[in-house]
């Protein structure tokens, strides 16, 4: 084109340069975002790793910037191992709860909702996904409080003994729902549920109706079709969703702080250690654990084909 048109200014000259060297334009476009992500994000992750190999001086309370594995060894103390196990167990049970609750919603949205209903389902899942996290947690504080709506509803329907029996279960019960593991679990499930519904729905939408019909023609019951046809085909979606629910639960420190027992989760340990305790190295070492767990999880998910469903 430059053979025919006169060069009108620096814009044209640059365009000619980009035309001759496409890599230059690509480099110019990529440089600012990559510099940002590389410096700010990867740089910080590196700082986290470095910090986790430091240790705190027990007498002065100051961070000693020398390489040591002492801080990681501290992770294996009984009380810290408890925190890790508790967090992993909670993440797993939250993921399971989300999968069970999400399935009917995703199935209905994928296979039965049409037209306006389809849009309503999409918005109905997307709005809670994006709306304020803290507002949602706060709403549950209102709901689960001893004098709150659940206690009131139980009293009004005469089911208070059932509620008390549930709260009396050793290990997961407590004084009220807002101070028990059950409460923490409920809020986690509620807050992360949309993250499970969306990939599950995407996976279910790809299940061909002809397969369900074929299964029925071959004499399978609903249950058999579900187990042998639907579930294997929906699995990549479930795993994709579980990446979010698992990872988000593992790193959260606000929900267990506001609703639950005084026992700590990884996120809380990180937050308290870097704040009031001033033990940055141990906080960093705690934060490395979810990274490692997620790396393993992602590798397994990749093998199960979950990334095609994202």
């Amino acid at each position: 084109m430059t053979a025919f048109l006169p060069v009108r200014g620096p814009g044209d000259r640059l365009t000619r340069l980009f035309w001759q060297r496409p890599a230059l334009l690509l480099g110019l476009m990529l440089a600012p975002p990559l510099l940002w992500l590389g410096l700010v994000y990867l740089g910080s992750l590196a700082a986290l790793l470095v910090q986790s190999f430091y240790a705190i001086d027990e007498f002065s309370g100051l961070v000693v910037p020398e390489f040591t594995l002492k801080t990681y060894a501290e992770l294996f103390r009984a009380q810290n191992l408890d925190i890790l196990m508790r967090t992993l167990l909670m993440s797993a049970s939250v993921t399971l709860g989300c999968a069970v609750l999400a399935f009917p919603i995703a199935w209905y949205a994928a296979r039965h909702a049409r037209g306006a209903w389809k849009a309503a389902f999409y918005l109905g899942v997307m709005l809670p996904l994006w709306s304020s996290y803290l507002v949602k947690v706060y709403a549950w504080k209102l709901i689960l409080a001893k004098e709150g709506i659940i206690g009131w509803a139980a009293g009004a329907t005469g089911t208070t003994p059932i509620l008390e029996a549930v709260l009396a279960v050793p290990g997961i019960g407590g004084n009220s729902l807002s101070t028990s593991y059950i409460g923490t679990w409920m809020v986690f499930v509620y807050v992360w549920l949309p993250y499970m519904i969306l990939p599950m729905q995407a996976a279910l939408e790809r299940v061909p109706a002809s397969m369900l019909e074929a299964s029925a023609d071959l004499g399978a019951t609903r249950g058999q079709t579900f187990r042998n046809v639907v579930l294997p085909l929906a699995m990549p979606g479930v795993i994709a969703g579980s990446i979010f629910t698992f990872s988000l639960t593992m790193g959260d420190y606000i929900i267990p702080q506001i609703i639950g027992t005084s026992a700590r989760f990884i996120g809380q340990a990180v937050y308290q250690l870097q704040g009031t305790a001033g033990n940055l190295p141990l906080a960093a070492a705690f934060a490395v654990v979810p990274i490692l767990v997620m790396l393993v999880y992602l590798a397994l998910a990749r093998r199960a084909g979950a990334f095609d469903a994202l």
Partner: peptide, 14 residues
């Protein structure tokens, strides 16, 4: 993709 606590703690370390 990584939990927010990791992003936060990384920046805090940096």
């Amino acid at each position: 993709a990584l939990p927010g606590v990791i992003t936060g703690m990384s920046l805090r370390s940096a």
